[in-house]
Design a protein around this nucleic acid. Structure first.
Length: 348
DNA sequence: TAAACGTGGAC
DNA sequence: TGTCCAAGTTT
């Protein structure tokens, strides 16, 4: 532990004792430790996702599946639908796989070491360390985007991300205390999300101001330096709305790839140029709507043509799944298709 | 190492 | 409206 450790951990933990956010996955007042199931679930939901977005999903989730046993017994379709709108759907697939692994191989109890946690699906370096520290009180070096930012400023690390990750991890290790590592991790994250923010940090409220090299240098918001991002390419596709009576045709997307495993409306291929009616689920008298749906994913933008048709209520088109149109919101589709469904339903 | 992988809040 | 960015993991 470096000489800097006491000057960081002690004031940070003191600040945390007075300013910790009350969050549904944290231990209630008086409880020694939080429920590992809730810590695990919240940490997976919080991957690349803000607290305000996660809260309602978390509350619904624990009401429906309160522990590993109940989740392990759940149907995949129900789990994917419950995750709809939260994004990064591989998390939901891995979440169910992890719950079943915990139920089958670990007796329904999450392992309590960082190394064992790291072996479970969906748990990477960050999440395994976070669970080990927060749920089990083990000393672990927990580095998320908040910690990266706080540490880069505390130590005035000028190397651009992602190359700076090694130096940042070493610096984080040097200030992580032996005791209360879980509180320390959560304190760093609370500090990063409320005070040491990406833009316009509130340094005058910061308990670490006196130890911060970036504050001393005068421009903490400049750090961490990040590499330039690639522009997002534009892609085009078509979403098909096939009605049969009061129902609409739905599909389940392939298990891997974009929106993998999710219930969805049928689409054609997504290409460089508009694809019109290519890939339509059936030969039918398709009408193309004037209104398009645009959606921005992480690494490309998508403009979708919307095509609608109706077939006779007795027509059989194989293993199709038909969904009641007036209950389309309960289908649990990703946001792209929820947006498209709203347009289809409101058309004149 | 780099690309794939969602979404919504904040400004 | 556009851009940045967020409690990252997997391949």
């Amino acid at each position: 532990m470096s000489a800097k450790a006491p000057s960081i951990a002690a004031p940070l933990l003191a600040w945390y004792d007075g300013h910790a956010r009350s969050l549904p996955w944290r231990a209630p007042p008086g409880a020694a430790m939080p429920d590992p199931y809730r810590v695990w679930l919240s940490e997976v939901m919080l991957q690349q996702t803000q607290v305000a977005t996660v809260k309602p999903y978390f509350e619904r989730w624990v009401a429906r599946w309160p522990d590993f046993a109940s989740l392990a017994a759940a149907d995949s379709a129900d789990v994917m639908a419950a995750w709809a709108g939260l994004g990064y759907y591989a998390r939901a697939r891995n979440l169910l796989a992890c719950a079943r692994m915990v139920a089958d191989r670990h007796g329904g109890t999450l392992p309590d070491t960082e190394a064992e946690l790291r072996e479970l699906p969906g748990l990477g370096t960050y999440t395994a360390a976070a669970i080990a520290a927060i749920a089990f009180g083990r000393r672990a070096v927990v580095v998320d985007a908040n910690v990266e930012r706080v540490v880069a400023r505390l130590f005035a690390i000028e190397t651009p991300l992602p190359a700076a990750r090694i130096a940042i991890r070493d610096a984080a290790e040097s200030i992580t205390p032996q005791r209360r590592a879980g509180d320390f991790a959560q304190a760093m994250m609370d500090l990063g999300s409320t005070i040491c923010t990406a833009r316009a940090p509130r340094c005058l409220l910061c308990p670490l101001r006196g130890d911060c090299a970036a504050f001393a240098a005068g421009d903490p918001a400049r750090l961490p330096v990040k590499a330039a991002k690639q522009p997002k390419p534009q892609r085009h596709g078509t979403i098909f709305w096939l009605e049969r009576g009061h129902e609409v045709l739905m599909v389940r997307r392939p298990g891997k790839g974009m929106l993998g495993g999710m219930r969805a409306l049928p689409t054609g291929p997504w290409g460089e140029a508009p694809t019109r009616l290519e890939g339509a689920p059936v030969g039918a008298d398709w009408t193309v709507l004037e209104h398009e749906v645009s959606h921005a994913f992480t690494h490309f933008r998508l403009d979708c043509t919307l095509a609608v048709a109706a077939i006779d209520r007795h027509t059989d088109i194989g293993d199709a799944q038909w969904w009641p149109i007036d209950r389309i919101d309960s289908a649990g589709m990703p946001t792209l298709f929820a947006k498209a469904a709203a347009v289809f339903r409101s058309r004149k």
